[in-house]
């Protein structure tokens, strides 16, 4: 059976291989006696192109092997989205606010009751901040709460 997902993945590998190979050519390949920076990535890129072509060929014929079916991707998608927003706002808003919201989202996706959700995300944020920032000396960004922390 041909699976469109596998063909897309194979194409991704192929494109990555082509990009790196092209970049390696630009870096100068050199000769074996005097290899230049592009030598190793070039050889490796060509190998990846060959392998992913073979994979695509087999995927086209429906023989690329087993992949697992996607379940309900709403949960993972929500968490990834929350994480992207987290990265974007971490340094501006600070660790405490953003982490509180992030853990609330994760718990929400896991269908936690509201009261427990608030309690757990709040205590997790505060405990982790104290343990890592105060105890272990990891500097976490204070953000807009600088004045209070």
């Amino acid at each position: 059976m041909r699976k469109p997902g596998e063909i897309v993945v194979g194409l991704c590998f192929l494109v990555i291989g082509i990009c790196f190979t092209a970049g390696a050519v630009k870096l100068q390949i050199g000769v074996p006696t005097e290899p230049q920076p592009g030598f190793f990535p070039f050889v490796d890129g060509v190998i990846l192109i060959a392998l992913s072509s073979l994979f695509l060929f087999r995927a086209w014929g429906g023989r690329a092997g087993d992949s697992h079916a996607f379940g309900r991707i709403k949960g993972p998608a929500a968490v990834v989205l929350a994480l992207v927003l987290y990265v974007a706002t971490l340094e501006r808003l600070g660790y405490v606010i953003t982490t509180g919201l992030l853990s609330a989202v994760v718990l929400k996706v896991m269908e936690t009751r509201p009261r427990v959700l608030v309690l757990v995300s709040l205590s997790l944020t505060v405990i982790s901040y104290l343990v890592f920032d105060r105890l272990l000396g990891v500097t976490l960004p204070p953000g807009i709460l600088t004045a209070f922390l």
Partner: peptide, 12 residues
């Protein structure tokens, strides 16, 4: 084949 592809990707 998948292992080889992942190895090559990792090297790159």
């Amino acid at each position: 084949l998948k292992g080889l592809m992942m190895g090559a990707l990792g090297l790159l």
